[in-house]
Amino acid sequence: MPKNKILVSGNEAIAQGALQAGCSFYAGYPITPQNEIIAYMAKHMEQAGGAFIQAESELAAINMVYGGSAAGARSMTSSSSPGVSLMQEGISYIAGSQLPAVIVNIMRGGPGLGNIAPTQSDYFQATRGGGHGDYHLIVLAPGSVQEAYDLTQTSFELADKYRIPVMILGDGILGQMMEPVQLSSKKIAANTIKNWALTGCLGRKPNITKSFYLREGALEEFNLKLQKSYELIRKKEERYEGLFLADAKVILVAYGTMARIAKSAIMQLRSQGKKVGLIRPITLWPFPQAPLNVKNKKLKYLVVEMSYGQMLEDVKLAVGGRNKIEFLGRSGGGVPSEEAMIGKIKKLL
């Protein structure tokens, strides 16, 4: 057996990845289907030398993350859809105060109390900001437990690098499913110097974390600074996986768990000689533009989601009317099947 390979759930992999990345502050509130994260943190965070708090609500949890991050700690919370809705206020303040933070959303069905089935229906909330104001999160969508482990580590690095909240967006299947994970042996050191952090002003001028800009013109000036940073992130951090893009006539676009099911459908069709491919966005914001910006007008796309046409809007924006786009989506616990995808693709071919 390979060394350091373990069978672990997506939720636990995220928690382990976070500790590996030097996360030293976690606050959370229980909600299915992500409870394994808070339980893991309760068990291991203090041993790792960090601070763990079970908060009185998601509202408190996200503001504790605000505080933890303002104090300079790599800080994280995790929740599921209704809890993440509650966190939006705090996420907006974190973005406005340029604090790095990692927020995990293991999505469940909505609107309202919905259900706990796997879904991807928080795409808009995650990629459009969610809370008030002109801001973005970097949104990462792992497609496997290994990737959940790896991307959680990446998320802390991106958060520190750009001083931005980063969201890990997964569905209940990703959170609950167990898969082998190759653990990394190297600890990622928190290598960013946080000279803005609140540590007491010994030997320096006071630091202030704030998002309040009352003087005329000051907020616009600040927001333009954020926009500049977003532009840089768009340029440098778009990530996706492409499969059979060179000769594909129909390309499926799907992310997270949905992309795995799409892959199964593609492998079946490829074995029958059908020219289909896959684009799996790994960053949902920034949404990968390059693979969808192609000259071949005959190329067709099939967007598949566990929601009713949310990512579809980003695909349409990226494709810019050049190509035909079909959509297949289910929600509320329904998962588009391989058969349904194959049926749609065959009509498009």
Binding site: A51, I53, N63, Y66, G67, A70, L198, P206, I208, K210
Partner: peptide, 24 residues
């Protein structure tokens, strides 16, 4: 005030303070 300070969203000062004190 001439020392380190943070804002907090309306009502959340003690959540923010809790975390800062736990970290430091």
């Amino acid at each position: 005030w001439n020392f380190d300070c943070s804002e907090a969203p309306h009502g959340r000062a003690l959540a923010v303070a809790t975390a800062i004190k736990r970290v430091h």
